[in-house]
Design a binder for these strands. Sequence first.
DNA 1: CGGACAACCTGGTTGC
DNA 2: TGCAACCAGGTTGTCC
Length: 300
Amino acid sequence: MPELPEVETVRRTLWPHLKGQTIVAARVLEPRLVQNRSTQQVEAMLVGQRIAGLSRRAKYLLFHLSGGSGFVLHLRMTGQLIYFPVPSALGEGDDSLSTPRQERRAVSGPGEETPDKTDHVRMVLHLSRGRLELRDQRRFATLHWLEEARSSSLPALLRLGIEPLTPEFQPERLAEIFARRRAPIKSVLLNQECVAGLGNIYADEALFRAGIHPQRPACRLEPEEIRRLRDAVTKVLREALDHGGTSVRNYRNGSGQPGSFQRRLRVYGREGLPCENCGSPIRRIRLAGRSSWFCEGCQG
DNA sequence: CGGACAACCTGGTTGC
DNA sequence: TGCAACCAGGTTGTCC
């Protein structure tokens, strides 16, 4: 699900709630979630710690704990991090006290109880004034424990490319990166070692706004096109952030609510619909193993 | 080195 | 209605 705007929205909606709270208990329910420790180790190391900070790098969320350690979460396709203001009773699965909008729909009848398996809860952090749940239908989400909560302590984070929405995100830097790549520009935008934080939605949307065909070899872009692309990426990410991200399917922010940028998508998922700019039908092709939508008229 | 592709999972949709 | 095939916001490992 989440690309940069969604992960950043999760961070922004969670932090006011989590700030300074202490982890009273921790339950890791999905063993595959934790990559570099045992679930029991992680549970034990979390207990008693205060949440001292929450930061983001690309699509990664970095939790800083009072002792100087921390952990990195990646939500992959269907991960959600949702805060519930009311703590659950510890020990057993009585999570029905505060019910987020999304699970109200799912539950039928008056006998609503028990967080059944449709909740896909993979980890619960019980906090002093509430609880934080990691839900993940497809079990792709990952957690890395960090002895020191710096982004340099995880190799995957060190390899990440340039971060959009920072001052270093300049056409000159992009030109250097693109010059070495003969691959289609869409593939390069999706490569996290080149530009970090874009995914399938915003890559397509940025290319449309820049008027660049997704299959153009990156190394053949003109300087003027690179400038347009930089501006388009910046603009579409900012705009999506303003609208709380894009909820095509599973995405929810830290309060369990969807974003609204899906209403402003111009090409993603719009095969056959007329381009809002020139009227020609939006086309879909397969590129780098992913669906890619674009307008032949505007992105010739 | 770069790039295509399968794999990791679950569940919703489509088409026969 | 049933069922198989295909699709989904991401990343990683393997093969060429």
